[in-house]
């Protein structure tokens, strides 16, 4: 993709044009403003560090979530959900963010949207268990996309 950054440079305003391969899991507008922070668009050291930092963080969080699920620790799950929600939202990883939000809400023993109480702990845990599978898939997808994006040699 030798022309990627060229495109970006020339079409600054048109969101997503420079990043056609990011798919709909990533909010281009949000992600692009991080890319814009890269001093060098070939190296992309800043955004890369952010993104790979996120990978690390997400994987750690998933491990913790699994553990918390095992321990039936809803509060912990909610808090982990909130945590990952923040990071993923910052990168514009919409799907991951939304799933994390659900975990946050289920962890508070609420429904998906966080509006209604759900006193059944088992139900909440099983919901989290289900959504955890989903969020990991969603994460794997964006991870793949992003890794590809960064692995693509920046030729110029």
């Amino acid at each position: 993709m030798p022309s990627r950054h060229e495109e970006e440079r020339s079409e600054e305003g048109s969101v997503g044009d420079g990043l056609p391969d990011l798919g709909d899991s990533i909010d281009a507008l949000t992600f692009e403003q991080i890319l814009e922070m890269d001093d060098d668009e070939d190296e992309r050291e800043f955004s890369k560090s952010i993104v790979f930092g996120f990978f690390e963080q997400a994987e750690e969080t998933f491990v913790k979530m699994d553990k918390a699920l095992e321990d039936r620790d809803l509060a912990e799950l909610s808090s982990l959900g909130h945590f990952l929600k923040g990071s993923s939202a910052t990168l514009g990883l919409t799907k991951v963010k939304e799933s994390c939000e659900k975990i946050q809400h289920y962890g508070q023993q609420k429904d998906e949207a966080g509006t209604t109480d759900e006193p059944d702990e088992d139900l909440c845990l099983s919901r989290i268990k289900a959504i955890l599978v989903v969020v990991k898939e969603e994460y794997a997808e964006v991870e793949k996309v992003l890794k590809k994006f960064y692995a693509t040699p920046a030729a110029s």
């Binding site: 001093d39 060098d40 668009e41 190296e43 050291e45 800043f46 890369k48 560090s49 993104v51 790979f52 930092g53 990978f55 690390e56 963080q57 960064y150």
Partner: peptide, 26 residues
């Protein structure tokens, strides 16, 4: 203690980023 990317592909040099001026790429 920001965790650096685990892949080691990223130049470990945060300092240039800290200086908004004097960087032509900006």
């Amino acid at each position: 203690p920001y965790a650096l990317p685990p892949h080691g592909m990223i130049p470990v040099n945060p300092m240039p980023e800290m200086v908004p001026e004097g960087n032509a790429n900006l």
